[in-house]
Write a protein that binds this DNA or RNA. Sequence first.
DNA 1: CATTCGTATCGACGGCTGCCAATATGAGTG
DNA 2: CACTCATATTGGCAGCCGTCGATACGAATG
Lengths: 92, 92
Amino acid sequence: MNRERAEELAGTLKALADPTRLQLLSIIATAADGEVCACDFPELLDRSQSTASHHLSQLVAAGILEREQRGKWAWFRLRRDRLAAVAEALRA
Amino acid sequence: MNRERAEELAGTLKALADPTRLQLLSIIATAADGEVCACDFPELLDRSQSTASHHLSQLVAAGILEREQRGKWAWFRLRRDRLAAVAEALRA
DNA sequence: CATTCGTATCGACGGCTGCCAATATGAGTG
DNA sequence: CACTCATATTGGCAGCCGTCGATACGAATG
């Protein structure tokens, strides 16, 4: 693995390597409709609204979540293909 | 996923989420005999001896590498089962 | 246009991390 | 025991990260 690829993969892993963000992903993964409103995370994670927003942004920036604005609410879904790609890289 | 499990998984992912450590793992993964001597890493990684030792320690502590002392040299092997377990957790 | 309310951004703080040079440790050798 | 040499540890520095309160932004609503 060359340095460039290592830095790219490390960037994605960094986004995953936080307990609050893993809980966030788990919440979305088990949600009935596969998506969760941003408004619910502060309570679900027991973190401030700004902290929840920060974590959501990081996961979107890393390509692990996708965000959709519907009316005044923002909804988040997993990008399972990206998670699977990371998992695959670890098996190699 | 409860907080305890999230912190445990995040700990393992933190150990993986560094480009130098990913290169280190890649070097071992592609080594002819599946193992590499600690003495080779400073040159292979282009990092100081203390830095290489530091990264090796972190990966051993995270359970991703196993260390074996043979004579005056230390050899390191991948624990592919642990990598596979992390990969599996990401697919869930 | 003014208000409301969901979300993002800012600023700050403490803690952690990657790196190196220097030094300590500890096993093999004579 | 003394010496060598491979590896680990220490100390220090600069930069990143998780968190919060405060504030700004922006879309729906009246």
